[in-house]
């Protein structure tokens, strides 16, 4: 499964319960839609670290890295390439 599909599934099943969200477009702004709150960010970080073996540092915690599934996909790719 691709990172995009994997993260989408995680967000739908774990973070967006009760919000009538069955699909997420990779470009959807997760923050503006209120899908990911502070607790959700920590859950997402834990998921990414465990699933992809990356380390998310304090300075990585920015809207630019987490505002959409597409951005998260790019962030994971950078981390895995050792560029982040």
């Amino acid at each position: 499964m691709s990172v995009t599909a994997d993260v989408e599934q995680f967000i739908i099943s774990e973070l967006s319960q009760g919000r009538d969200i069955t699909t997420i477009d990779p470009g959807d702004n997760l923050l503006a839609k209120g899908i990911v709150d502070s607790h959700g960010v920590m859950e997402l970080v834990a998921f990414l670290e465990e699933r992809y073996g990356i380390s998310v540092r304090d300075e990585d915690l920015t809207p630019e890295n987490f505002e959409s599934v597409a951005r998260i996909d790019e962030f994971v790719a950078r981390k895995q390439d050792g560029r982040g």
């Binding site: 923050l31 503006a32 209120g34 990911v36 709150d37 502070s38 607790h39 959700g40 960010v41 920590m42 915690l61 920015t62 809207p63 987490f66």
Partner: peptide, 12 residues
């Protein structure tokens, strides 16, 4: 604007 999640908005 959009203070949540504050963890991602603290720098702003």
């Amino acid at each position: 604007e959009d203070p949540n999640p504050f963890l991602l908005r603290r720098q702003r």
